[in-house]
Every structure is written in structure tokens, then in C-alpha cells.
Design a protein around this nucleic acid. Structure first.
Length: 112
DNA sequence: CGCAGATGGCTAG
DNA sequence: CTAGCCATCTGCG
């Protein structure tokens, strides 16, 4: 299995790295930021996440403001601890894994 | 509200 | 070029 990050994946990870501390992005946002329009592709790149600890995949949430499958089964109970850690940065999530403050949802497009 | 199907784009060989 | 994949999204009853 060639786990080498491809152009698209690198773009996704780069975007995650662009996310300021205490902020999260929705799959749709990333998709749009990548000019693709497909969150599915994002999920794939994140799931593969060769940069696991370097890429804040936990900062990527669904359009509903949910963590997604990361805290569901793809991640792990330990992730719950991370959510709390994120809360320290400003990204507060619910015990279920839903974003509490949509206010932390970051936007790639800088439009005022 | 809840479920199911459809969708779009990505990866690999 | 083809096939399979995905942590999604959207619509409908």
C-alpha cells in the first residue's frame, strides 16, 4: 500500500495546518477550499492521514457541527480526551462529539 | 425525526 | 481507463 501522500492529500493536510488554534472546519468548507465540492474526498484523505499527529483531523467537523466519524468508531475513546484538550484551545465539543460553539468554525475564504 | 440512496471526487494498478 | 472507496450530503416519508 503506497501510503505516500498525494497532491490532494497534501493539500488537505496543509489546509488543516492553516486552521488557526481554537478553530475547526467543516468537510464542506475544506472541499470548497480545495475547489472540489466533495467532502467525501476530504474524509478519505483524513482517514488515511499519514500525518496522524501532525494533522489535526479532529479539527475537521461535519457540516452539522459534529465531529464526524472520528469520535464515533474511526477514532477511539482516547479522542474524547483530545476533545477536552481542544476545549482548552477554544474548540469545545459536547460529550457526544458535537461542536458546542459553532463560533470556532473557521473559514478559509477571507471575506468580510 | 430517521433512514436510505445518491453523489463527487480521490486512489491505486 | 477501470474499479473500489469514504469519517459525506441531501432528500423524502
Amino acid at each position: 500500500m503506497m501510503r505516500e501522500p498525494t497532491a490532494f492529500e497534501q493539500r488537505v493536510y496543509d489546509l488543516l495546518n492553516r486552521i488557526p488554534k481554537g478553530k475547526v472546519v467543516t468537510y464542506k468548507e475544506m472541499a470548497h477550499a480545495l475547489d472540489c465540492g466533495s467532502a467525501q474526498a476530504i474524509g478519505q484523505a483524513l482517514k488515511r492521514n499519514p500525518y496522524a499527529p501532525e494533522v489535526p483531523c479532529h479539527r475537521v467537523i461535519k457540516t452539522d457541527g459534529n465531529i464526524g466519524g472520528y469520535s464515533g468508531e474511526t477514532g477511539g475513546a482516547k479522542l474524547r480526551k483530545k476533545l477536552k484538550l481542544l476545549a482548552s484551545e477554544g474548540v469545545k465539543f459536547d460529550s457526544g462529539g458535537s461542536l458546542v460553539s459553532q463560533d470556532v468554525v473557521y473559514r478559509f475564504s477571507d471575506e468580510s
